[in-house]
């Protein structure tokens, strides 16, 4: 599948890659320079592959309270809410962003999960709720970086259907939802204003530095949000919701695995799947890892099942020392 910006990417010399069936830019000039642009100025990302599901009807808000782990009533004071969506066993079906839209609620979901989420939501919806997969109505452009909002002032935003001041980079910025036909013009205006086109390679570095989970790595149907360090998005006191009982049991279980951050002491680069040893004993595996240019070292997120004094990561047969680090690795200056 191609996004409405496919030809913009080719014209800009992007190297394209397959991402869950979508042809998306892996990089344009270089991953490191794209990363630097977002940390220092502003970058833009084509995130049109993201799915959008509209939940509407008189029972919509009550249903979302059951469907999602976070308290959706926060939308009374906030324009958007991030929340995991769990199965009855507490595993994560997906993580989503919700906002009010078109008289109902729009859920922005992971591209690879769109069909699965749509089925799950429809299957659980009561009769006074309508669920529609309206992904084809939107292209999405993320503008991220310290200069993101200054740059927006230079573009014609009249075609923007929805602006969500969210992102996946650890920088300030927003995600602009537009009709697919309006996306190329907005993309060209933003790049002309100085936004640097960035691909999936830079996006992965940026979100790893920012300690943000990637579905399929830090979250999955076998991983609960509590284990992934997303407990602040699980609201036990809001009433019942799908997965509540399982998550309560897990919350009180002393033996659950947990996500930790590790920074490497040497120059070896941790990658997903590498084994983690705690005090010399296997205790987990890397879920995301790589270079962290903003920190000047290499970092990993990993699930571990036990606490240790000393951690190492096995890289090509060698135990490379790592130090426990607080997540996120990178925090922007306010």
């Amino acid at each position: 599948m191609r996004t409405p910006l496919y030809h913009e990417h080719l014209a800009a010399g992007a190297r394209m890659t397959d991402y869950h069936g979508w042809e998306l830019p892996a990089q344009y000039g270089g991953i490191l320079s794209e990363h630097a642009a977002v940390r220092q100025r502003a970058g833009i990302f084509d995130v049109s592959h993201m799915g959008e599901i509209l939940v509407s009807g008189t029972g919509a808000l009550g249903f979302l309270q059951i469907l999602l782990t976070h308290d959706v009533r926060r939308l009374e004071t906030k324009p958007w809410v991030y929340s995991p969506m769990c199965g009855t066993d507490g595993g994560t079906v997906d993580d989503v962003i919700v906002c009010r839209y078109d008289g109902g609620f729009l859920l922005c979901v992971n591209a690879a999960n769109t069909e699965k989420d749509f089925s799950w939501i429809r299957q659980n919806a009561p009769s006074d709720v309508t669920v529609e997969n309206i992904s084809e109505r939107f292209a999405q452009i993320a503008v991220q970086g310290p200069d993101a909002f200054t740059l927006l002032e230079k573009a014609d935003l009249s075609a923007v259907l929805l602006q969500s001041n969210t992102g996946y980079t650890g920088e300030r910025g927003c995600e602009l939802y537009v009709a697919p036909g309006d996306a190329p013009k907005l993309w060209r205006e933003l790049t002309a204003a100085g936004a640097v086109p960035c691909g999936l390679g830079a996006r992965d570095l940026l979100r790893t530095e920012a300690g943000l989970p990637l579905y399929g790595h830090e979250l999955s149907e076998d991983i609960s949000p509590l284990e992934a360090g997303l407990g602040r998005f699980v609201c036990f006191d809001k009433g019942d919701f799908i997965g509540r009982d399982a998550l309560l049991r897990l919350r009180d279980s002393p033996s659950r695995r947990r996500l930790i951050g590790l920074t490497m002491q040497g120059r070896a680069i941790p990658r997903p799947g590498y084994a983690v040893l705690g005090d010399g004993i296997p205790c987990g595996a890397v879920t995301s890892g790589g270079v962290a240019p903003a920190l000047g070292c290499n970092v990993a997120m990993a699930f571990v099942t036990s606490e240790a004094e000393r951690y190492t990561i096995v890289i090509r047969g060698k135990e490379e020392p790592a130090v426990l680090a607080e997540l996120p690795f990178y925090r922007r200056r306010k």
Binding site: A26, D204, R316
Partner: peptide, 8 residues
């Protein structure tokens, strides 16, 4: 091994 930003 040689390692790039994205792979080993």
């Amino acid at each position: 091994a040689v390692e790039s930003v994205k792979a080993a």
